[in-house]
Structures are given as C-alpha cells and as structure tokens.
C-alpha cells in the first residue's frame, strides 16, 4: 500500500512542516517515505504544496501526481487538485477557509473547520496540524502512536516549547467528528 499524499495551501500555512511531520511519522513506523516540496519564490507568500509518499514498497517517483489523499488548505488548491485525486481517495478540506464543497462523488471527503478549531483552542497557527491529526485518524495504515517522537524530529530545538501545542492540535484533529 502506497499512500500518496498531497498537501497544498498558501505559503505560511505550514504545508511543508505538516508534510515533514508525516514523513517522519512514516519513518518511525519503519515505512518507505519521501517528501518533496514545491520550491522557489512561490514559497514566500504564494502557493505551497508538498508531496509525501508513505508505504511498504520502495518509493519510485517522489512526485505525487495522483494523490490518494489530498489536504486542501485553501480554495485554489482544492480547485487545482480535486480532479487529480484517485477514485476512492480522501480529500481533507479546511472548511473554515474553503466555503466550496467538493464536486466529485467518487471520493471520501472530510470537512474540518481546522482554522476555527485552532483559533478557539488558542493555537491559531496550527490548523495544519489539526488536519494532520484528522489524516492520521482517517488513514488505514497509520496510527496515533509515536506522534510525539515524530514531532520531536521536525520541531527545531529552539522551538521545542511548542511541542505540547502541536500535540494538542494533532489530538484535536484526531478527535474531531464532523
């Protein structure tokens, strides 16, 4: 099983960070993983996306063209990638920022008001991790175990004080039921 995940949003929403968390989570679970960011000037304030592949087979191309999981953190990303998701795949939508609904009916969709949940919980910038929590919940082959270890790999040492809120955000997403 190869989980091909595409996370997309604006620069600054923590798209790349969320992807790194997932990749490290996969590595701890002894899976084959890759992480590939979009790069260049667009990262600085424009759109950002990253491809994460987690699975049991060696990763071929690290580029996710046909995701089985799409995490859309803004409307342009949903519009751009909605149709690339494989039939039966999963789309996670930050419904606080995206009013539109997914038009396809051959995919699973989770609407998570991640930005609002994050604001209410007092960690406004962690909508990304709320979505990651939900992704772990919805994933068939990933668990919530070792989440803290994975976070420790991606949070820089000087920001380790943010470990707890990141965990809370993940938990919030994991426990959220639409």
């Amino acid at each position: 099983m190869m989980n091909q995940i595409l996370i997309a949003g604006f620069g600054g929403q923590g798209v790349l960070f969320a992807g790194k968390f997932l990749a490290n989570k996969g590595l701890i679970e002894d899976k084959q993983v890759s992480w590939l960011p979009s790069y260049g000037p667009e990262m600085r304030g424009g759109t950002a996306n990253c491809s994460v592949i987690i699975g049991d087979e060696p990763v071929g191309s690290p580029i996710v063209n046909e995701p089985n999981t799409l995490v859309a953190m803004n409307l342009p990303s949903l519009k751009k990638y909605e149709n690339s998701v494989v039939p039966g795949g999963l789309i996670l939508v930050d419904s606080s920022l995206i009013a539109a609904k997914v038009e396809r009916n051959d995919v699973r969709v989770c609407y998570v008001p991640a930005t609002e949940l994050a604001k209410n919980a007092g960690f406004a910038t962690l909508a990304n991790m709320i979505l990651m929590g939900k992704l772990l919940k919805e994933s068939d082959d990933m668990s919530f175990d070792d989440t803290e270890d994975a976070l420790k790999k991606v949070i820089p040492a000087r920001k380790m004080n943010l470990l707890d809120v990141n965990l809370q955000a993940l938990k919030t997403g994991y426990d959220y039921n639409a």
Binding site: V33, S34, P37, P62
Partner: peptide, 9 residues
C-alpha cells in the same frame, strides 16, 4: 532540483 529538494531516509 527534485533530488536536491526532496527528503528521504
């Protein structure tokens, strides 16, 4: 650029 930017174990 891809191999330079991507992360793998």
């Amino acid at each position: 650029g891809t191999t330079g930017q991507m992360m793998e174990p």
